[in-house]
């Protein structure tokens, strides 16, 4: 169940829109912040809350890549592999992290600490290569920077 605090947040957001359908994406964001991912149960809960067909919520949640349709680790590492990052060695960055954490792209470590994904352009082309860990951007990546970061996140 969404917390009372989150329900209040949603009530507040309603004032910005002429209908409840427009709240689908904002509420999915709020739900993902609370649960870490969007389960089918969550989609049903949102549909009920906003008085929308469940299929609408499923359709939207599955369209947008930021909504995790399965659980992710405590830290979700998303390595950009699009052009500018690719030109500056994103492939090696991704490979190195996978090797270090002993997982494959799309996988989660056994201790549920890390999930790694390769993602499309994150708008950091001038500071490539880069990755996002949860909400934070880490730019101008080097192997040393990654080592330091992963150590801090342990």
């Amino acid at each position: 169940m969404l917390t009372q605090e989150n329900l209040n947040k949603i009530e507040e957001l309603k004032k910005r829109y002429p209908d409840t359908k427009s709240l689908t994406i904002p509420v999915l964001h709020i739900a993902q912040e609370q649960y870490g991912w969007i389960s089918e149960e969550t989609m049903k809960e949102i549909a009920k809350l906003l008085n929308l067909p469940v299929n609408h919520v499923i359709g939207v949640a599955t369209f947008y890549t930021m909504f995790n349709k399965k659980p992710v680790g405590k830290y979700h590492i998303q390595v950009c592999t699009n052009i500018s990052c690719q030109l500056l060695g994103a492939e090696k960055i991704s490979e190195y992290i996978c090797k270090k954490l002993d997982i494959r792209v799309g996988g989660t470590t056994d201790d549920k600490m890390f999930t790694i994904s390769e993602v499309e352009c994150l708008g950091s082309c001038g500071t490539a290569p880069m990755m996002q860990v949860n909400d934070d951007y880490h730019e101008n990546l080097t192997i040393e920077k990654i080592d330091k970061l992963l150590k801090e996140l342990k």
Partner: peptide, 12 residues
């Protein structure tokens, strides 16, 4: 007039 932010969800 009002100004609101809407957050996208990862779709080019």
């Amino acid at each position: 007039t009002d100004v609101y932010i809407v957050r996208g969800a990862g779709a080019y």
